[in-house]
Design a protein around this nucleic acid. Structure first.
Lengths: 193, 193
DNA sequence: GTAATTTCTTGACATTTATCAAGTATGTTT
DNA sequence: AAACATACTTGATAAATGTCAAGAAATTAC
């Protein structure tokens, strides 16, 4: 029950008292999942919020042809949430699955609400998480509509090289919005230069 | 100084007392902008949050070639915010510009913070706005990486036909992540069927 | 109302990316 | 170690989308 990593995540984002963090994380419980296990299935309602302490995971949808399209990749340390499902109690569209062995801390909506309305620092933290996640998405969208696949690949390789050590290329390809064949060719072309 | 539309927007999103809404919107001031006027320039820090009461606007970036890439389209009634700039006081990457004559209500960060920490319903509202905006972005990203341009065009035409009456096709094309030539051909192909 | 500007369309052609199928490499299970 | 499954690469070809340039249509400015 060592909450060091969980608590440090709060400290890393903005200035906050140790006692306040400990109060926020009081109700969090730890658990682990093996590789390729679903944290959250589609068409279900998310009842928990998750802090990913260790490992890699992704969210994905199944398109009309039944193919998996990776919508997001998560690596520790970070919070993993289906915001719409958790906060609005609506069914998820996406599937959340581990890509490696993962360890998590979780708490439920009731505790989040309690903290949100009683701990001003937690409100600020919550809003900060939203802002950060919103802008990650925004930046990805801008890249997808304005840059070609090779540029997007090179940018991801430069910014997050570690994911190439832990995640199959076909999943990274789908995250980049291209097929695995195309990614393979891009990598070949680049290696020639 | 008729705040009916502004106040009604709160009521439309979730159950909330009239007095609470009036307290929230107490500090909002009205203003209008002509067509093609910047609400927020790039590389500036947003000091206000805006409610768009009437009209259409967009945000866009300039890519490496100096071409405008429309990142978002807004239509009344809605809140328009550069979240990162407003809440984190960072320079904007995007330009926010009216596409038609627009009327707005604005208030500053100090008032938002005051409301956020003293009015529980406003906190809930703020989080709801984030969730809604996050999922609009998420859905767009999924469309862009998993559907071809024609499908995306048809979907937009079906869901938001009104924007085609108010916004030039070249801007809609850029919002869809394609060139205006391609959009023109897509429209021709569809009209043949 | 005419000129000027902007938007939209279209043709010819180039580039990017996808599809399908086969083969190779790698990893996992027993 | 063999058998199996999964991941990755590659070739041939097709489909989607972009580029550039020109002209038509619509809108705005004077």
């Amino acid at each position: 029950m060592d909450k060091t990593n969980l608590n440090n995540y709060f400290h890393s984002l903005f200035p906050i008292e140790t006692e306040t963090v400990e109060k926020i994380t009081e109700t969090f419980k730890e658990f682990t999942l093996d590789k390729n296990i679903r944290l959250l299935d589609k068409e279900t309602i998310s009842t928990k919020t998750y802090f990913l302490e260790k490992g890699y995971m992704r969210s994905y949808i199944l398109n009309e042809d039944g193919e998996e399209v990776t919508t997001n990749i998560y690596w520790a340390p970070c919070f993993v949430n289906d915001f719409l499902s958790f906060f609005r109690q609506q069914p998820t569209k996406e599937i959340y699955e581990t890509l490696t062995e993962c360890s998590f801390w979780e708490t439920n909506l009731e505790n989040v609400q309690q903290n949100f309305h009683t701990i001003p620092e937690f409100r600020e933290f919550s809003r900060l998480l939203f802002v950060i996640n919103y802008y990650k998405l925004n930046d990805r969208l801008i890249e997808v509509v304005s840059q070609k696949a090779e540029t997007r690949y090179l940018h991801l390789l430069k910014k997050q090289p570690h994911i190439f050590q832990h995640i199959p290329l076909k999943i990274i390809a789908s995250y980049l919005g291209i097929t695995d064949s195309t990614l393979s060719r891009i990598r070949k072309d680049i290696s020639k230069m």
